[in-house]
Every structure is written in C-alpha cells, then in structure tokens.
Design a protein around this nucleic acid. Structure first.
Lengths: 129, 129
DNA sequence: TTATTTGCAAATCATTTGCCCGAAG
DNA sequence: CTTCGGGCAAATGATTTGCAAATAA
C-alpha cells in the first residue's frame, strides 16, 4: 500500500464514483475501460489491501460475492429484495440504538449496522413479484 | 422437501440446538457425529432447500462462508469484531425504525436488519486487540 | 537502485451438480 | 412402484497465490 499505481488509483476512483456497492467483477469491467489489460487478480488484490487499510468497506451480503463501498463512515442501507440493488439512505446515524439494544448484556458495543429491505422505486412498478 | 430423511432431520436439529449461527462445514462436522458417512454435499443441499423453504435463514457476513440461523423471525444480532462470534439479542424488534429512516424516499420497506458490533464478554477480557 | 505492484496461470476454497443407487411414501 | 434424497466425484465460480517482469519512488 505504499506506491500509487495506475491500477490502484483506478479501482479507488471507480468505487468513489459509483453509489451501487458493486462486486469485484463489476469494478474490474469498469476499470478495464480505462486500463484494458488490467488483470482481475489485480482488482481483487487492491480491493483486499484497501479494505485492510480501512480505505474502503466490505458489505455483508448473502449472494456469494463480496460487495464494496467507498464510504466507510457509518451510514444506513436499503436493499431491494427483487433486484438486489443496495442504496444509501441519508438518514442520520442514531448511536443511541446501541445502548438501547445492548442493555445490561455487558457487551462492549462500538458500532452498528442497519439495513432496510423491501422494494425499490423501479421494482414497485413491476406488477408480478 | 417432501420426504423426511434422517440426514435432513439431523441438519435441522443441529441448527435448532445451537445459538452459534454456524457455517456449513461446522454443521457437517456436528451431523457427522451422528451419521458418520453423511456427505458434505448433502448438508449443503439441505441447507439450501431449507433456506428456500423459509425454514432457516442465511445471515449476511463478510467472511466468504454462508452462515445459518434456525430462527427466521426478525431479531437483532451482535457480532464480535475480534472472534467473529454472532450472538442473538433479545431486545424487541422496533418496526418504527423503518418509517423513520425511509422517510419520504418512496421506498416500500417490508423489513429491516440490525446488527451491533464490538467486543463480546470473552474478548473484552483479552488485553491486546 | 530496490521495494512494490502487476499479469498471468495455477491453486485453493466454498458451493453446486450429474448420475446412479437406496429409501420413503 | 415411483419419486425424492443421498453419496460420490467432477464441475463451477469466486478469490488467492507464486513468480518473473514492469514500475514507482
């Protein structure tokens, strides 16, 4: 993580400029438009390093693909049950939830993650689901 | 899902009798104590079928292994950042969170997932982290 | 110069599938 | 009987790794 390579910068830039919380393959395809002979392994390598360095975050999902987010500060997500899209909510983070739920369990709570689920605007228009 | 096989019953029973939200390998090892020649594929197959039938739930995690939960009703989790353990919280689910966060976005919210993170009781005792 | 990073291909790991046999209903 | 589920081994798909060549500092 101590050299600024073209490919690493491109991975960061792609992730910064999308709000779609993409997986590695999607990021790879995007970066390839700028650096056509970049290797998928390089994308994976950089995503892992950036994550370990805390510059990006990995989202917990159930679809067998790691999804990434450039915004590491805590914020809330909405996930569409139909199309799988993940949207950022701009509601403020409410830390008081943490004490309220942990109660007297003795757990040391440092953060929380909250995600709404349902149908996004596009998918609500589609009749059968 | 319309026959009651010994191995399927065993998978369900193992999951029902643990609170550790295990992955497929762990469940496999447990069931093997009762049915030594069960196949790992059978465990995977049943976990997928049971999940599709809504009898168990899959938890979203970032560790490249699918984790399962026998309790499909909505409830909150605590995840230990150090040991990765996932605990159930017995705090009541607060559906009012959904309207509060979705606001006037137009999203149709049907459920939410909330997870606290930090250090569990055991890991708080360990000095260096 | 020299430590890092890349691209490629092979390796690994979790999970799924094809197929044929045994078991449940 | 007849259909569904199991075991095994091979297939798949995502992610990682070894290594020699390329590149940033």
């Amino acid at each position: 993580m101590n050299k600024r390579s073209r490919q690493r910068e491109a991975v960061i830039r792609v992730l910064r400029n999308t709000s779609s919380h993409p997986d590695a393959k999607w990021i790879y395809e995007e970066v390839k438009r700028e650096i056509p002979d970049i290797s998928l392994a390089t994308v994976y390598r950089n995503l892992r390093l950036l994550k370990e360095a805390g510059e990006i975050a990995e989202l917990p999902v159930t679809d067998n693909n790691a999804h990434f987010d450039y915004h590491t500060e805590n914020h809330y997500h909405f996930r569409c049950d139909r199309c799988g899209r993940i949207l950022d909510l701009d509601a403020p983070v409410d830390r008081s939830i943490e004490e309220r739920l942990a109660g007297n369990t003795g757990l040391k709570v440092t953060h929380h993650r909250l995600e709404l689920g349902g149908l996004c605007l596009d998918c609500q228009k589609i009749k059968k689901f």
